[in-house]
């Protein structure tokens, strides 16, 4: 069985090809082969496979990649919406909806919840 695909056309992943230096770190850390190399630069090969884990953006030395990173976990979304804090659990939801930030530092997030 190949890669499982979640919803289409929702992912916030963006790549600025001007900034890319072609180091290939994003290809290494991506767990779903979303990116590929094209003439010495990274390119988004299959956007719908992206799960917004943020590994590529975190490891991009030139901030060429942006993504609203977070954990795709319904329980965490519910807990955050209800204002519950379950910091002992593993999922985390980003604190604010500020667009375009590179990778949100989960340390700044006060609300963590469980998956």
């Amino acid at each position: 069985m190949g890669q499982l695909t979640y919803l289409k056309n929702v992912v916030t992943l963006e790549l600025d090809e001007e900034k890319c230096v072609g180091c290939g770190m994003c290809l290494i850390v991506c767990p779903h082969a979303v990116l590929s190399m094209n003439n010495g630069n990274a390119m988004i090969e299959d956007r719908d496979l992206c799960m917004e884990c943020g590994a590529c953006a975190r490891n991009c030395p030139t901030e060429a990649i942006t993504v609203q990173a977070g954990v795709g976990c319904a329980a965490a979304v519910i807990n955050t919406a209800l204002g519950r804090d379950a910091s002992s659990c593993c999922c985390v939801i980003e604190p604010a909806e500020d667009q375009g930030a590179q990778v949100k530092d989960p340390k700044e997030s006060s609300q963590a919840s469980c998956c």
């Binding site: 890669q3 499982l4 919803l7 929702v10 992912v11 977070g70 976990c73 319904a74 979304v77 519910i78």
Partner: peptide, 20 residues
């Protein structure tokens, strides 16, 4: 089933929010 998104290995937060 929706809550299993958290344990799965391929769901994005944007997608989960849209689904919810």
């Amino acid at each position: 089933a929706m809550n299993f998104t958290g344990a799965s290995t391929y769901t994005s937060l944007s997608g989960v929010k849209k689904e919810m």
